[in-house]
């Protein structure tokens, strides 16, 4: 009994780390992705080129490699981050690149007439983006953003290699010590519940936005 209590407590700790990474990454990667998308779409030559390069690197290399790079390579050039910050940096940069591409496609799918109507009503470019284009874009990108978010839940398990005590690592430690597979099952249930909740939230959001899309 005591053993089970102890196991559960450890796993609860582990799931806290997983949740922390998940929510903080989401909170930073979404706005950063939007900024990257807007810069990419703007006419600013060099900045735009820099964003394309950044997206290419992030999408063209494995997230695992990016994590290892932040964790092991940055300290060599004198940048020392704690475990959580390292993980957050790598996850945020990686996911922002994917979100940026989703947002860019979403913005480009808004018909030109929306910009023209805004312009003839006197909106500035910034006002047009903020009040007209981005709100419509959000409705359109919910399905792909939902997909990426669910991927992020599962990708958080990659911090396993950074010796951070996330859910998966805790589970493995217990399994190896106790020769009992239950922690793996508990971990699986945890991930499933999270994806279930996220799917539910995104369905609600899509239903909310569906009211004006015919």
């Amino acid at each position: 009994m005591e053993q089970i209590m102890h196991t559960s407590a450890l796993m609860l700790e582990g799931s806290k780390v997983t949740l922390e990474i998940f929510f903080l990454t989401l909170m930073m990667a979404l706005p950063l992705g939007l900024i990257v998308a807007l810069i990419r779409l703007s006419g600013l030559g060099i900045l735009r080129w820099a964003m394309e390069f950044y997206i290419w690197i992030m999408r063209g290399t494995p997230l695992m490699l990016q994590l290892l790079f932040v964790y092991f390579a940055l300290p060599m050039v004198g940048v020392r981050l704690n475990d959580l910050s390292s993980a957050l940096l790598a996850f945020t940069l990686n996911y922002a690149a994917y979100f940026a591409e989703i947002f860019r496609a979403g913005i480009q799918s808004i018909p030109r007439g929306q910009y023209e109507a805004s312009k003839t009503l006197g909106f500035t470019y910034v006002q047009t983006m903020r009040h007209i284009i981005i709100p419509q874009m959000i409705a359109r990108v919910l399905p792909p953003v939902s997909n990426e978010t669910i991927n992020l839940v599962k990708d958080t398990s990659l911090i396993y290699i950074l010796a951070m005590n996330d859910l998966l690592r805790v589970a493995r430690t217990i399994v190896q010590r106790e020769f009992d597979m239950t922690p793996f099952v508990i971990a699986a249930v945890f991930y499933l519940v999270m994806t279930f909740v996220l799917t539910w939230v995104f369905n609600k959001l899509e239903a909310h936005y569906a009211k004006y899309i015919d």
Binding site: G113, Q114, E116, A117, P135, Q136, Y212
Partner: peptide, 11 residues
């Protein structure tokens, strides 16, 4: 201006 395709803000 009024456009052929109306261009109302759908949201």
């Amino acid at each position: 201006m009024v456009f052929q395709q109306f261009n109302l803000f759908p949201h």
